[in-house]
Amino acid sequence: MLMIDIIKKLTEAYGPSGREEGIRDTIKKMIESYADEIIVDTLGNLIVRKKGPGKKIMLAAHMDEVGLIVTFIDENGFLRFSNVGGVSPHLLLGERVIFQNGAVGTIGCEKLESMKDLKFSKLYLDIGVSKEEEAREKVNIGDVAVYYRNCETLGSRILGKSLDDRIGCSVLVQTLMELNEPANDVYFVFTVQEEVGVRGARTAAYRLKPHYGLAVDVTRTGDTPESETMAVSLGKGPAIKIKDTLIISHPAVKKIMKEAAEKEGIPYQLEVLERGGTDSGAIHLSREGVPSGVMSIPCRYIHTPSEMADLEDIKNGVKLLKGILNQPLS
């Protein structure tokens, strides 16, 4: 399977926070033959072990994506909803969404005096029915919809939904496939509920007691017109995280990452992210503390239906990750 096919398959799969069964099965099937051991834990994290002699390393990429949860169905069959994870109501007008069972809908808005009044409470989901009973045949309260988008390739750039963090999942899958006899004991953890508060990583790290933690996730960039001041660009390589809201990366982990990149001649960037966090935020505070860091794949338009990343960054991410895992660590 080509990297791009893995990415396509994973980004197009359904799997909002708390409803990761589908994406988990998809990943499980892909990696089964490469794993030494597979566990699904209480919260639904998929934990895949590739044995090695060295240190226990926990890699984390989250499977879940942001979504919309149905909270009410009115007599005419319109659905009201709330957000699962960080979704802005402004992105939703006219957006198309899909439920686990394949039901599709679009998002409409009440009449507004001003766009400033646009809040979730003003939006509704139209699934093409005209009565509450008809709606209930397709969708129930508590069901979660996700963006309905295909993954496109634009030259070396990839455009699609849930690159956050199916890109990370793809990097883990590809790395696992290419990894022969790693120098370390590696746990590839596909986590749940990152978007609602890095929850899956917390319980998985507690279970695994790793020596090192490394999340693979996407990060923002500062390379678009009048963007925030951030020193990360698409296409300049994976980023070694220095800090975000939830973690200040451990110096030892940063060093391991830099050395691996330099040894393999992989371009990399350094990332200071002012708002946002990843699974490493939970991992590094597990039990007595776990030295942790993050390898980030630069990504534009995060949490929108059209996230964009560069395939070269992703491929270099795989190389860098392999380099790290193949290094004997102290």
Binding site: T42, I69, T71, V84, R202, T203
Partner: peptide, 23 residues
Amino acid sequence: QFRRFTGANTDAGKISLSREGVR
């Protein structure tokens, strides 16, 4: 009935994340 609101915190938040996780 189902609670039609996704805000506010409950003890379940802490319990569910205790140790290896609790349903």
